[in-house]
Amino acid sequence: MTDVAALDNRPVANSYLATALDDHDDAHGGHRTSLGLSNMKLAMWLFLGSECLLFGALISTYLLSKARFVTEVVAGNPLVTSTMPAELIQEFAESQSVEPMYDIPFTSASSFILLMSSLTMVLAHKATVEDNGQNKIWLSATALLGSIFIAGQVYEFTAFYREGLTYTGNLFGSAFYTLTGFHGAHVTGGILMLLSLVYMAFRGKLRSDRAETVELVGLYWHFVDIVWVLIFTIVYLIP
């Protein structure tokens, strides 16, 4: 409680103390909000907005690299090429012949798995809000589905690598692995967060009072899913 006695010799009119709100509310300092929104949720949305620019740049880089890989690789910089020994030029030409052979059914399946993990994620949130004890199941399912997706990506990378599409071999390889790798790293980060939640849920510490924590992880998880929706169509389905 504010010490009103300290105000004795001060004119009270127009002072902020005279027009203060109920002091009890005030003591919650950091939790007064002027929009009626949760700080954490607002911050998460701002962060996701920032991520739009990040993935936008990566997707653009990929599209540009792909375009130039197809039409201009050999032209490249002929003036530079002219100074390369013949065997290097030969090697270069071979590296350009490597194109990815997408396995569309396989990638469709992993896309589907990621979409399904979004469903289990919202169900986990709902279960937490309702505090019905099911959130540990749904959170575990989400983490599991995410892990399957990552495993699929590892398998895909290995397959491409064996076909000769390496990270350093050509422009396309660098761009493809960087874009999908960045997404994979985001998924992995999400899995770590989910596992933490699963741990909390099994310890019985993830009750409805922490529903917002689950919702925040969910927002991140769905965003990662959205990015994959874009990547799947733009990278895999549109040649």
């Binding site: 201009e72 050999v74 032209a75 002929p78 003036l79 090429t81 002219s82 030029i89």
Partner: peptide
């Protein structure tokens, strides 16, 4: 013709 290595181009 630009798409071939330079020693054939210039």
């Amino acid at each position: 013709d630009w798409e071939l290595p330079v020693q054939f181009i210039l």
